[in-house]
Design a protein around this nucleic acid. Structure first.
Length: 227
DNA sequence: CTCGCGATTCGCT
DNA sequence: GCGAATCGCGAGG
């Protein structure tokens, strides 16, 4: 029996189900913290990172959202599809950003994955981003995609697929909340507390002032209600 | 077709 | 702290 060192043949933990994504977007964003983002390369190498920072984009009424005002174009098409798929777009002509589409088809909402802590694939990451320290490999949405080789080729990919998926992971000890980063143009929507991060993680991006807040209390992961 | 600009990052002052 | 890099997208002529 072939034993693979890079775990390409290792049994794979189950990806989060579609139903995970078909909920209120802010809930999904909060709930994605601590989960394991996984990427399988063509050669079988599997890369993993622990999600430590996310942002919710709440659809047609959210001025910061690409689908604001009902905008439906070739670019925003993935947002309009089923939850549990990837929306990968290019920003500033050089960086890809990864979103997890939420809600059901017809509700164009998503969660931007802003940062993660490297869990698996250190050799690959180091070779790809030699100028950065380990903690910075996935610190920021552009670097995260760079490190994990996530490009627009994965746009619309199923997040339960073979190339890209998200696993259960572990519950963070402490969660922070703040306004979203880089959306000052969004008027009143820019004030909404839709950014979630794992407090104390060295891989969280953004200004210090947002990450070491004074009074914020972390909302708890909503208990699975039984009706 | 032209124009303005962005859910960022990096390097320099 | 500031500005350049770099190009696809969306709006408008």
């Amino acid at each position: 029996m072939l034993v693979s060192k890079n775990s390409s043949t290792a049994r794979r933990s189950k990806p989060l189900p579609r139903s995970f994504y078909e909920r209120a977007t802010a809930e999904v964003a909060r709930d994605l913290l601590g989960r394991t983002l996984c990427r399988r390369l063509e050669d079988g190498t599997v890369l993993k990172g622990r999600i430590v920072e996310t942002e919710a984009y709440e659809g047609v009424g959210d001025r910061a959202c690409h689908a604001y005002g009902g905008l439906r174009t070739n670019r925003t098409e993935p947002l309009w599809g089923d939850g549990g798929h990837a929306y990968v777009y290019l920003i500033y002509g050089m960086y890809d950003c990864l979103n997890a589409v939420t809600r059901e088809a017809g509700r164009p909402e998503a969660v931007l994955i802003r940062a993660a802590e490297p869990l698996q694939g250190h050799e690959f990451f180091r070779e790809r981003l030699p100028h950065l320290k380990e903690r910075d490999w996935m610190r920021g949405p552009g670097r995260l995609c760079r490190a994990m080789a996530i490009t627009r080729a994965l746009n619309k990919a199923d997040l339960r697929g073979d190339e890209l998926w998200i696993e259960k992971g572990d519950e963070p000890a402490s969660v922070g909340v703040s306004v979203r980063i880089g959306v000052d143009y969004a008027g009143p929507c820019a004030k909404k507390a839709l950014r979630f991060f794992v407090k104390g993680s060295p891989s969280v991006s953004g200004p210090k002032a947002l990450n070491e807040p004074v009074k914020s209390r972390a909302p708890k992961r909503p208990a699975r209600s039984r009706k």
